[in-house]
Amino acid sequence: MRLPVNPPVKPMLAKSVPGIPDGASYEPKWDGFRSLVFRDGDEVELGSRNERPMTRYFPELVAAVLKELPERCVVDGEIVIATDHGLDFEALQQRIHPAVSRVTMLSEKTPASFVAFDLLALGDEDLSGRPFEDRRAMLVEALSGAGPSVHVTPATTDPKVAQRWFTEFEGAGLDGVVAKPLDGTYQQDKRVMFKIKHTRTADCVLAGYRWHKTSTQEKPLIGSLLLGLYEDGRLQNVGVVGAFTAKRRAELVEELEPLLLGDGEDHPWQEWSSPAAHEGQRLPGNVSRWNATKDLSFVPLRPERVLEVKYEHMEGTRFRHLAHFIRWRDDRTPESCTYEQLEEPVNFRLTDIVPGLGVAAD
C-alpha cells in the first residue's frame, strides 16, 4: 500500500469522564471491534486496536469496502454485528476463528457491518492533522454513497441530544456516548477523546477465585473473584471482579480461606471443565478465542458470601466488562442474589439510530 497514512496505525483513544462535557461533537459509543480500514485501489486491510490485521476474519467487509468506500482512503470505525435485537458482541467474537471454512460460513451466516466515525486520509491527503470538525464533514461527504454494509455514525453538537442518546441507545446494545473536541487532531494511541459509559451496581455471590499471574507459592496473590447470580435455583456465572492492589490481593488469600471446600463438598460449577456442562448452565472456563492457552481454572469456594459490584452493562447474561468491587454485603443471603435485581434498558432499534444498519444481514 502507498497511502498518506499506512498500516499499522494505533487508533486514537478516549478516557472516561463522569458526564457529558460541553462544546464537543457527540457520537454513540459502538460496542464492537475497533478497526481502521485501509483501501488503496484493490488492496484492503482491516487493522485492529492491537495493530493485528483482522482482514481474514471478515471477507464480506473486504468486499463491501471495495464497493462502498473511496478508492484510496483510511477510515476509523467499528466492526459490529447488527440484529433485530441490537448489537451482538457474542456473535462478533465467534468470527475470530483459525479455520477458513468456518470464517467463510460465519461471514454468510452472521455478516458484519462497519460503522465509520473518522477519516484519516483521502486520496493523497493526510487528514490526521486537520481539526475533527473538518474530518467529520469530509467523512460524511466521502461516504455519502456507502451502504448497505458501511455506515457513518450519527453525530451532534447538542449536549441535550447526546444525553438523550446516552439514555435511549443502550437498549440497542450501545454502551454510552463519545465526545470529541471539534478542533482536535487525530493523535495515535492518545486518550484525547472522552467516553461516558453506563455504570450500575449488583449484589453477586462469590463462587471462587483465580490466582494472579504473578502469584507464587511463597507469595500467593488472588487475581480475580468469580461472580454468580441465581436463576431458577441454579447459580449462573455472570463475570469476574478484579483490579485489586497487590496488598489487597495478598489479604484476600487469608480472608477467603474459611470458604474453601472441605473434603467431599460439592460446588455448583464443579463440572466447568466439561464442554458438555456449558450447554445447560452458564459456567466459567469457556476457552478464550483470543488466547486459547490461557489457564481458566479456578479455586472453588462455598457460595456463602455476597459482594456488591459496579458494572457497565450486560452482554446477554454476563457482565460485558470486568466488574469492580464496592463492598461486602454480609446482610444479604446468596439465594437473594438473582437476575431480577438487574436494570433492563428500554428496547431501541438499531435502524432508528443508523438507517439500514444490519439490513444486509437479513
Rank of each mutant, 00 (worst) to 15 (best):
A276C: 02
A246E: 15
E45G: 01
S25I: 15
K180V: 12
F33T: 00
D158M: 02
G239E: 01
A243K: 12
I353L: 11
A360E: 09
A202Q: 01
N237S: 11
L61F: 05
V65Y: 00
D84I: 05
G47V: 03
R248L: 07
L127I: 09
L66R: 15
R320F: 00
A121D: 15
A142Q: 05
E257M: 05
G19F: 06
P345A: 05
D189R: 12
T214I: 06
R136I: 05
T245A: 10
V299A: 00
T83I: 10
E315N: 07
R34I: 01
F319V: 08
R320M: 00
L226H: 01
E344P: 00
E125F: 05
Q94K: 14
C337Y: 00
E125A: 15
M193V: 00
P4V: 15
P181Y: 05
H313G: 00
E141L: 08
E51R: 09
F194A: 02
L127Y: 13
A24Q: 15
G123F: 04
V238C: 09
T245L: 01
R164C: 02
R249M: 14
E78H: 14
H321N: 15
I353Q: 05
L235D: 07
R2W: 07
V44P: 09
Y230E: 08
G233N: 07
V62M: 13
H151N: 10
E60G: 10
L225G: 14
L106T: 06
R34A: 13
A63K: 10
T199P: 00
G173Q: 02
P303A: 08
H267G: 12
D330N: 15
K10G: 08
R52F: 07
T83P: 04
R72G: 08
K190T: 11
D118Y: 03
D266A: 14
K247Y: 12
P181M: 14
V346M: 04
H97L: 03
S273R: 11
I81Q: 01
E90Q: 11
L226F: 02
E78S: 12
D295C: 03
D203L: 00
R210G: 00
R130P: 01
G47A: 09
V287I: 15
P4I: 12
N286H: 08
E68T: 07
A179D: 03
V192L: 12
S215W: 02
M1T: 11
H97C: 04
S107H: 06
K310C: 02
V17K: 12
A246M: 15
F169T: 13
E340N: 10
R320Q: 08
R39H: 11
V240C: 05
L322F: 01
N291T: 10
R332N: 04
E60A: 10
D76R: 12
H151V: 08
E315A: 07
N6S: 15
L227K: 02
